[in-house]
């Protein structure tokens, strides 16, 4: 417990170290999630359009 507490304290610099690490993790995570969702949405949109067009060509 004491070890974890000291780890979290970061030698008294917790107020600087953890925000820096946390902010980095947050920005990278948000960018990743946004990119994944955007890619899925665009590809789904394209797939739908292609499917519609495919039907249109046959008909």
């Amino acid at each position: 417990m004491d070890g974890i507490g000291r780890f979290l304290e970061m030698g008294g610099y917790a107020a600087y170290v953890w925000p820096a690490l946390g902010l980095t993790a947050l920005v990278l995570a948000v960018l990743l999630i946004a990119s994944v969702r955007n890619a899925r949405r665009r590809e789904a949109e394209l797939a739908q359009l292609e499917a519609e067009l495919g039907r249109g060509d046959e008909g």
Binding site: L32, S35, V36, R41
Partner: peptide, 23 residues
């Protein structure tokens, strides 16, 4: 990490371009 997100974003851009071209 950059390469992964780059590939993902490029895929999204390509899909968007193709959608636009089809429309």
């Amino acid at each position: 990490y950059f390469f992964s997100v780059w590939l993902l974003r490029a895929r999204a851009e390509l899909a968007a371009l193709r959608t636009r071209a089809l429309k």
